[in-house]
């Protein structure tokens, strides 16, 4: 299956799964919703396996790398700033909702940077010949 054919099938599949999931919501049956999502995931995997030809290469990885770096930078700085502003607005009332959201954002930023550093450490060792 070529990439173009796969894209067409994928679009049709997404539409069908969306319709089935919506029907599940409308009739109030969670099993229909879950079944539609599960079937969609399985069919997407089947479609991907039937795909022939190259759809990813070093350029797409380079694009993904740059996008990931920008995302981490923007998201990290953004969350840290918004969290700091919320904490400043909350002043000393650390039990307020504003402060809790601020703390959540700050800790999420910390978690993001920690995961990022672990990933960097791992790939740095893996790609430098260290065992």
């Amino acid at each position: 299956m070529t990439y173009q054919t796969c894209k067409t099938w994928r679009a049709a599949l997404v539409a069908a799964v969306g319709a089935a999931a919506a029907a599940g919501v409308v009739i109030g049956n969670v099993y229909v919703l879950l079944a539609a999502i599960a079937a969609g995931m399985v069919l997407l995997i089947v479609l991907r396996r039937r795909l022939t030809g190259v759809v990813e290469d070093e350029r797409t990885y380079a694009v993904a790398y740059r996008a990931a770096r920008l995302t981490v930078a923007v998201f990290g700085v953004g969350m840290a700033l918004v969290g700091a502003v919320l904490l400043a607005v909350a002043r000393q009332d650390f039990t307020s909702t504003t402060a809790r959201i601020g703390f959540t954002l700050e800790f999420a930023t910390c978690a993001l940077l920690i995961v990022n550093q672990f990933a960097y450490y791992y790939y740095n060792r893996k790609m430098s010949g260290c065992s």
Binding site: G53, V54, V55, E56, D57, E58, R59, T60
Partner: peptide, 14 residues
């Protein structure tokens, strides 16, 4: 060329 070199056509264009 992309198929024979094992990359995407977008890469050849770039």
């Amino acid at each position: 060329l992309a198929r024979r070199a094992g990359c995407t056509r977008q890469t050849i264009i770039a």
